[in-house]
Write a protein that binds this DNA or RNA. Structure first.
Lengths: 318, 318
DNA sequence: CTGAAAGCGCTAACAG
DNA sequence: CTGTTAGCGCTTTCAG
């Protein structure tokens, strides 16, 4: 009987003891599945992310997991691999598993959001983090990308760069647009011209290598690069060094967010530290607030986390 | 009625159509929880790993996930954060969630294995990968660590190294012992002396930095280092370079397994490529073989995957 | 061909 | 204080 195990006050001590002994003798393990069905609460939350194989996302997951396991929740992780179709099918999976809430960072391909609305109509609270879905009314945890990018670009300007390139992410993502915006703001403020040949959509290691190659071939040589993520920055760095340019003397480089990679390059990469773990715990706390509270009115909350520019060798001229 | 949706042959076409229309109008989503309870199969598998924040493990997960989602299975991921207690509690969680099978790589702390036996007694098939549990009778997917380490060390010997250090992992793990063994085999074969001062347990970036520092301070200077993983190799590399030694001219370095980091260092890091994604798909296939077959006799299988030494700048002298 | 009922494991509510 | 029952959503079996 469940009351004995649950240490209910109305139960005789002897009975409790007897039941508990029997339970441990039979190695009784409560069946979480039956419990979920009974309670229509699964004590499980879902995570939808593009790819686990990125330091940023895996550190966010660590943050989420720590909060979840501390609250007795299990975590189901679904990767979209940056594919829209996979994201839709993941949403269906999580819905049918009746997760109690979902933390989401959308894929690069995603520009339709019905699958998220379905989830919400199914009564599942959603918290978007980092790569949010524009137009969906839900809790958000974001980095102050405009401000961080502004600071990164301003730092390049202050160290003497005049022709600063931006390697941008796909403009479907809010974070990509914001990072571009911060870059533009800094240029405008400093009275520097905005040159379209210096703004290129390139957000992977490989794309950066190619892009830089083409730029140098065309004589379109920047003296600074602000890249949308660290792998892109590192790709650029490699090609630049291979072509014989000196970093940071001839070209300065600043990346964004990918964590521990920055300490490995030579010179070390200046980058914006995005505090992935903290974003994970924050997002998870917000989700559990929704799950566990029973407020009727739904007012979406937005948490903006600071991201800090860390200046290292790749942009440090003396 | 489920028969209509399942396209059962004994059902009138008109009825089927009517039911399907109604289902889509009401946005009917099958409840996977109820289904699990009914079938006592959850269509869910579990993964137990130390930490997701490692390229190797996250690429293994990608492999597992791709196989699982293709078979219509959901994946629950549990991290131990290298803590034994957390691993035990994760095992309990997965058991109570009645997962249909579990893929496991044990924590550094783990040296008792009852929690895995419990799982097996609960009728859950287990497949261990990479960091296996010695003494447990279960399917295994492992890297040929002895052979790979032998090759890595032999390569150092062939390029002229005579005082080769090994930065080893915790000797509780089979993989750590095997990697040490491969190193010893190569030394012995080449008639090189085995010097205990050159074999040091250091398996993180930080530990490697300190260790190398102490070695150099003590005048205990190697001319080659074989490290148990890439982060360790990179930590060593940084300190060595900071102290003014040239890589590979004075000291050669070879790492192990961490994937894309090797292309980022200067010089690029020679390393053993461990094919994480492939290990994931292999392990998942083995697990599904157990889950879906109904053979009575249980004969554990062992799959040994090759790992290939990739020679790059950090050990390439001309 | 189709409706009804039983039961997966659990707990809250209700009797005793 | 403790035993019994209903029902979470599904499918399989058995009647109709």
């Amino acid at each position: 009987m469940s009351r004995a195990l649950k240490d209910h006050p109305d139960i005789n001590t002897d009975t409790k003891k007897a039941v508990n002994e029997l339970a441990s003798k039979l190695k009784y393990q409560p069946n979480a599945v039956a419990l979920s069905l009974k309670n229509s609460r699964s004590n499980t939350i879902g995570i939808m992310i593009p790819e686990i194989v990125h330091y940023f996302f895996s550190s966010v997951i660590s943050g989420i997991e720590d909060v979840a396991s501390q609250k007795g929740y299990t975590v189901i992780i679904c990767q979209s691999n940056e594919k829209f179709a996979r994201e839709v099918s993941n949403a269906k999976t999580l819905l049918s598993h009746r997760v109690d809430g979902i933390l989401i960072s959308i894929s690069k391909e995603t520009n339709s959001f019905d699958h998220f609305v379905n989830l919400q109509e199914g009564g599942i609270p959603l918290v978007f983090f980092d790569r949010i879905a524009p137009g969906i009314s839900a809790d958000l945890v974001i980095t102050d990308d405009i401000d961080a990018s502004y600071n990164a670009t301003r730092h390049l300007i202050e160290t003497g760069c005049k022709r600063i390139a931006h390697f941008a992410g796909p403009q479907g993502l809010v974070i990509s647009r914001d990072r571009l915006q911060g870059y533009l703001n800094a240029l405008t403020e400093a009275g520097l011209p905005i040159d379209k040949r210096l703004i290129i959509e390139a957000d992977t290691f490989e794309k950066a290598r190619n892009t830089v190659g083409h730029m140098l071939d065309a004589g379109n040589v920047p003296d600074g690069i602000f890249a949308v993520n660290d792998m892109t920055a590192i790709g650029a760095m490699q090609t630049i060094q291979k072509r014989g340019y000196k970093i940071p003397d001839q070209i300065s480089i600043v990346g964004f967010s990918d964590g521990y990679l920055s300490g490995i390059t030579d010179p070390h990469l200046s980058s914006v530290d995005q505090h992935g773990y903290e974003m994970g715990t924050t997002a998870a706390e917000m989700l559990f607030h929704r799950i566990l509270s029973d407020e009727d009115e739904y007012v979406p909350e937005v948490k903006v986390l600071r991201a800090d520019l860390i200046v290292r060798g790749s942009s440090e001229k003396e």
